[in-house]
Design a protein around this nucleic acid. Structure first.
Lengths: 114, 114
DNA sequence: ACGCATATTCGATGATTGTCGAACATGGAG
DNA sequence: CTCCATGTTCGACAATCATCGAATATGCGT
């Protein structure tokens, strides 16, 4: 048996009540992960490979794990894809206004009215 | 001359407009630094040594540097003390609602009504 | 059954980070 | 002037982290 124990991850997500603020802040302090979350805010669900983040697949996978364990995203299996969604509603209950404020702050720097 | 070049730091702070969101999030993702900022929110100004953060003096100094360079705090010399203040107003202009939302989320976890 | 697309796990590597103690700098008190 | 309190810089160290390539797993076409 070719040591078959991989991708065995049952895709665990923390309970909404167990989401830690510092984990959320840390997760969002990385450019790639912030990009992922910003994209997810606009779209309901999206496959891993479809994010315009220019890193290796394994690195991307790592970022999803960090985001998932921080409680920011939810992932579900669909065929051989993994669909990712933002846990916006739960986050809103846990930390009211937090995600909105952070994502608003992440806008490209307002052009300042002419 | 005993290589006298230390504490030469002219205490530089980033311009409000140059404050980066990811730097702010990263700065706040450390427990000690979050504690410092939370205390600072209630008090206008405070000396470095007076924070109930249980780390070595040099470590504390490092945390202040991170917070200062992220644009979260302002420090000024007063005698041989260094007074620290939160840059709340400037932060509010740069990232409206961000600090409030984060600090609200950092509250001890509401006791849930009896 | 075979190959391909999607995505993860593993192991390694270099960079960043939090931490400390020792040395140093500064300003005020005795 | 000498001590002391305050706080920084320096150098070191261990831990964490972002990153990659290779190997692996899974499901769907052909």
């Amino acid at each position: 048996m070719p040591r078959s124990r991989q991708r065995r991850a049952p895709l665990t997500h923390p309970e909404a009540a167990d989401i830690e603020l510092l984990d959320v802040l840390h997760a969002l302090s990385d450019p790639s992960r912030m990009t992922i979350v910003r994209i997810l805010r606009a779209e309901p669900e999206r496959a891993c490979g479809t994010f315009p983040v220019d890193v290796a697949a394994s690195t991307l996978s790592h970022h999803f794990k960090v985001l998932r364990e921080a409680g920011l995203i939810h992932q579900r299996e669909e065929a051989n894809r993994r669909l990712t969604a933002l846990r916006a509603d739960e986050l809103q209950v846990r930390f009211p206004g937090l995600l909105d404020a952070i994502l608003a702050a992440a806008e490209p720097t307002e052009p300042a009215e002419s």
